[in-house]
Simulated scan of single mutants.
Amino acid sequence: MTEPTDATVDSSLSLGPFEFECGEEIPELEVAYETYGEFTGDNAILVCHALTGSHHVTGAADGQGEGWWDQIVGPGKAIDTHEQFVVAANVPGSCYGTTGPASTNPETGDPYGSDFPAVTVGDWVRVQRRLLDDLGIDRLRAVVGGSVGGMNALEWAKRYPEMVERVIPVATGPRLDPQLLALSAVARRAITSDPAWQGGDYYPDHPDSGLALARQLGHITYLSKESMGEKFGRDFADSAPGTFPSNGRGADDRIAGFGPDSYRDVESYLDYQAEKFVRRFDANSYLHLTHAMENYDLAANCDSDAEALADFDGEALLISISGDWHFTVEQSNHLMESFERAGVEATHRSLHSDHGHDAFLTEPELVGPPIRRFLSSDSSDFAPVHASLFAQ
């Protein structure tokens, strides 16, 4: 074996025809992936990205598209690529290299659009498994992911428990609660109500206004009351709304009788985030990925979450964020109890942050240390990982 390094490889793999769990098939599925470090036989870690992330885990930060965990993964970092071989794959249905709705259907020469099959978290795991098989990896030291990437990690423990030594679900839950389902439904309607939507077959145009509103609604759920109060308060913005279709205000507000002081800092921030997002993401992909998240249920085809995890004999580290109302601390407590009922050695670390759900991305100084300790602890014979490892 060669000496481990922090070498990075950005590549793609054709899996040929692929049948999704919905029963529909596409003639070819291309999966984009990136690896970091050198594989030594027992040091592979699969990192699962969040909703609009990509396989570009490190590098120059570009929102959640690229470099989204650059301060967690890399040489000498919490997931140390001098020691670990990290694999990250873009999930099916996305728009970052793996086949999705914006990809060309080889049978028609046009984008799939509305013809692209519905995807599930299970489909993501099946594709990742086939990628790992191609890379010659039959055992994972760990699977780690945040938000819906944490659901991805949980599904690995359920579906392929014999392949996983450790699982690290971060800021996630076994399913979405009704409030998040409702908000997601409104975001979906924002996209499909855009006149440019065209039933999902809008290429080369894009329903930017609807996608921007959907992203703004989603972004609100990633923040906390405390963080929004600290960042924006009730202050008015220094400049008036721009012409970007996401703001939905400007002239309409003036017609309705609102004055120029009706545009606040918090709105300006949401407009800025939406403008960045529509430049990098596809509306169809957003709908497919949110649909997969909405429909995920760890206990599917089982009597309980504990039964779903019963075959997993490794170890688990659950990380939650105190200010997170997207995936709450209580949901991680429930997961902890489910792992324990399944006989799995598990530790739950609730991290204090006022920054809400996004803290798992924006506060690596909080999230990194427990991950580092969990991965560096003795794993011979799956030795129990005790809570004392994570004392403040």
Rank of each mutant, 00 (worst) to 15 (best):
D252M: 12
Y222D: 00
A182K: 06
V186G: 04
E267N: 10
G242P: 04
D253F: 02
S193C: 10
P241I: 00
L181S: 10
A214F: 05
G229A: 10
R264S: 13
F244L: 06
R189T: 07
F236C: 14
K231H: 13
G218A: 08
Y203R: 15
L223F: 08
M228W: 03
D208Y: 11
I191Q: 02
F236Q: 15
V266W: 03
L180R: 03
D238W: 06
G200R: 04
A237W: 00
I255E: 12
R254N: 02
Y202K: 07
A212F: 02
L180A: 07
S246K: 00
H206V: 11
A187L: 05
L213Y: 07
R188W: 07
K225I: 01
Y263N: 00
G210D: 04
P178S: 12
A182W: 11
D252W: 07
H206Q: 15
D265Y: 03
G242E: 05
E230N: 08
D261C: 03
A190S: 10
D235F: 07
Q179F: 12
D261R: 04
M228E: 09
G199P: 09
D194T: 08
P204Y: 11
S193N: 11
D261F: 05
K231T: 11
R264E: 14
Y263P: 00
L180Q: 06
S239A: 13
A212D: 08
P241V: 00
R234A: 15
A237R: 01
G257Q: 01
V186Y: 09
I220S: 07
A214C: 13
S209P: 00
A187D: 02
A237D: 09
E226N: 06
Q198H: 13
V186T: 13
G233A: 11
Y263L: 03
N247S: 08
S227V: 12
E226K: 02
G200I: 05
A214I: 12
G199K: 06
L211Y: 10
L211R: 05
P260Q: 06
I255T: 14
R234V: 07
R188L: 03
S184R: 08
I191H: 02
L217T: 14
I191D: 00
S227A: 13
P245I: 12
S239V: 12
P241A: 01
F236S: 14
W197K: 07
Q179G: 06
R264L: 12
S227Q: 11
G218L: 02
I220D: 06
Y222H: 02
G257M: 05
M228D: 03
T192L: 04
Y263I: 04
A214W: 01
D252A: 14
A240E: 10
E226Y: 02
R234P: 02
L217A: 15
S246C: 14
R264D: 15
A237Q: 02
A240I: 03
S268R: 06
S184M: 06
G218T: 03
L183W: 09
Q198G: 07
S227K: 05
Q198T: 05
Y203N: 04
A190I: 02
D208L: 15
D235K: 15
G233Y: 10
P241L: 00
